[in-house]
Design a protein around this nucleic acid. Structure first.
Lengths: 192, 192, 192, 192
DNA sequence: TATGAATGAGTCTTCATTCAT
DNA sequence: AATGAATGAAGACTCATTCAT
């Protein structure tokens, strides 16, 4: 979806470059600036005009990722309706941001809890709160901690985004696969 | 935690070095050879004696990972008993290999389907067959494809291994969290 | 003498770099890439931009050396006039290439006859043919083989080039010293 | 003649190691200690037991070379008889030392005149004096300087030693080829 | 004494970055 | 604004050397 190919000649704006970079860097953290630039259809030096350096690019990715993650959370109205409905809305909103989200998760693996990006920690808490709300409402089991459910959500989103890109899962099934697995699991309910 | 320093005199064998490298590289793909060497308690040059270069190290990690993954699959006797029981055995057997597995998954993301490591593809097929068997036996739902369940298993194992290392999930809960989520999901069963 | 320093702003082209490298490497085969780069007035990384690596540099030197050696042979018209005249023209033409030639000779010492650079073997044959023509015309003695005379020519050119650089032989005497020794030898002719 | 091959198991004494090292290093200055050791039929560490390090090896080579060169000069009695006879004796005596001599020449290329090895400079002067004696006696031409004739002698010895090793000149012709070329040159004397 | 394993020093190579055009 | 050339910094790799056996 965000693959423009190498030959793209049109001027690519900053956000498009960031999305392409996120998709690449979340899959290959060792990608060089040259690879990032070519994936975005621009030259190395031009990439440096947009972002002062690799660090700046990474920070921009984090900022964009957190911004879009936050927007998705806001729009999902996590406090409205059942927790399940809210989760479905959240996953739907996160689909276009999956690449950025996977990048964020990978980046934050490197840090200990204290050094974790502040914005990320805040959003993390909001998602965690959603699962807690579900537990308090009796919708979700309480033997799986909100922290783990949150991590699992991120993991499944990243995994599914990769599976979609590699053609192992159909793009249209993205939300369904994640939500159904996360909420219902693989086991066939007896009486359902 | 795993910094033994230079003075460590005990002979660190090849496999120990590989395990340490897997744990490090699966979390930080950009780790330098120096970091890998120090994490393993040996010098850079000694690391190069064991593995001709970075590529050789990665290939050795892949080989070890596939070997241990295969051993875990063999020992789990995926064809015996219910699919659920087999899956529980498999997850239990994969727990010590989680770091290597996460590394393998990340590495295989870089390849297109055709170029995928042959050994990996074979193991992948065996896990996938387990989920298919569960579906055919009526244990597992059929609206979640075996391919997706397989991917999800890998994703949850990697995610949970990270969460354990970062202290967000208790080590003793590793198997439980993964299997319960994968099989039962977060939703509270009505009558259970 | 040839240290231009880092501040040198003029663009140093590929061929100039090669000539400098040949002069250095033919005298000091163990010279580092850094020494080569500084002798050429450029940085290490820039040297690597021009030549992918040390091997590539050596191959480029061989190619240039063979090319210039061939040009010198062509221009010497080895088949015209007496063999002695042709030899004088050849040595004159080889003077500016002496450094490259010495390098080529040294490099080709490393190979067994079969693996010898093809281009070099061809030029070698042309020089050898010149000495054979001289023998057939009665100009040259026949107890010294063309192969040896060819080798001796290379050896004397390299030796003299070094002697000139070290100030043991005057630069203007280069051709004279080589040709007179090679043709007439040190012995004083009786009746001359 | 001094090639023992790799499989040699007998204890190789210091001098034999040096001769093998000289033969190798004069042809490939970049040879590693490992290559030198294997050419001598011993292990790396054993080579280090014989010679404290690479520098020590090189110094030992220089010392042995100068010693043998001096012995050859002494035995050639350069002051006795005609210069030509003395030169023939000298070349005959230098034949077994050709490898070491080639190494010495190469090494001394690296130094400016002042830093030149003292022992070498002394021997150089004795050879040069031989050529001067030949000029003063009217045996040798005076338009070729003693310094150049000395250099040429070294160059031809090294060149011929290589040519012999590569099979381009017969070993039995070593002395003849060198002396005849150096003294008589390639030109056919008219009245001889 | 001889050897294989280990390693510090130093070279080779690459990459992020800057600069001139 | 965009590009190719140039380069300092840093990582990958090799080699001379040492150590334990």
């Amino acid at each position: 979806m965000s693959h423009l190919g190498y030959g793209c000649l049109m001027t690519v704006d900053r956000e498009q470059v960031l999305r392409t970079a996120a998709a690449l860097l979340s899959r290959k953290a060792t990608a060089t600036m040259d690879e990032v630039a070519r994936a975005a259809g621009i030259g190395r030096a031009t990439l440096h005009r947009h972002f002062a350096g690799r660090d700046a690019l990474v920070r921009a990715l984090e900022a964009l990722g957190i911004q879009e993650f936050e927007a998705a959370i806001d729009q999902a109205r996590l406090h409205d309706g059942t927790a399940e409905e809210a989760l479905r809305r959240l996953v739907a909103g996160l689909e276009p941001v999956a690449g950025l989200l996977a990048f964020l998760v990978t980046e934050n693996q490197l840090f200990e809890g204290d050094q974790m990006n502040e914005g990320w920690a805040r959003l993390d808490a909001r998602v965690s709160a959603l699962f807690r709300r579900g537990q308090e409402r009796g919708e979700f089991r309480i033997d799986l901690t909100p922290a783990w459910l949150t991590e699992a959500l991120y993991g499944l989103i990243g995994t599914c985004a990769w599976a979609v890109q590699d053609g192992r899962v159909a793009a249209k099934d993205f939300q369904y696969m994640i939500v159904e697995l996360l909420l219902g699991g693989a086991r066939r309910s007896v009486e359902r």
